[in-house]
């Protein structure tokens, strides 16, 4: 258990360093939902679109290579994701629509927003944390579907 929080802290600093790079070098805010959404709804054009696509390529390729090469053991890369297609589709739609309506997710509102004490970032983070805890409580402890 002690290793869990040390890994969490190290990984968290890596996430913060990635956001810092994207801000200081590229002048952009590292928000995963904005980067994905801008590509799929066509709102990111020109160099923004190209940089978003390059960012996504790195985001998919590096973890895949770390796992496939064995640098991160397979057991440490389990997703434990539900195998129920209805859960996956409903959750995916809620996360996709919700993050785009709110204009941010855990990385944009959470990491990048809270770190500059953005009012919207703080309110969004409090709201999705509360929503997430309530959703998990209802689906796990009331309905028992997850």
């Amino acid at each position: 258990m002690e290793q869990d929080w040390i890994r969490g802290l190290i990984g968290g600093v890596m996430i913060g360093a990635a956001a810092a790079m994207y801000l200081l070098f590229n002048g952009r805010i590292m928000g995963a939902s904005g980067i994905l959404g801008g590509v799929v709804d066509g709102s990111a054009r020109g160099s923004r679109r190209a940089e978003n696509l390059a960012f996504l390529a790195g985001l998919v390729a590096v973890p895949a290579l770390l796992v496939l090469s064995g640098l991160i053991p397979r057991e440490a890369a389990q997703t434990h994701l539900s195998s129920n297609p209805a859960v996956l589709v409903a959750a995916g739609l809620l996360v996709g629509i919700g993050t785009r309506l709110a204009n941010g997710c855990t990385s944009g509102h959470g990491v990048c927003g809270i770190s500059r004490l953005s009012r919207r970032g703080l309110v969004a983070t409090a709201t999705y944390l509360a929503g997430g805890a309530l959703s998990l409580f209802v689906f796990r402890h009331v309905f028992g579907v997850i």
Partner: peptide, 27 residues
């Protein structure tokens, strides 16, 4: 901001994935 974050939270609790980790786990 509020409605979207509530929807996002609902999906996040249901599956345990948000957009960054969902993309990182794709491979």
């Amino acid at each position: 901001l509020i409605g979207g974050s509530l929807m996002f939270g609902a999906g996040w609790g249901l599956a345990g994935l948000c957009p960054g980790p969902a993309t990182a786990a794709l491979g």
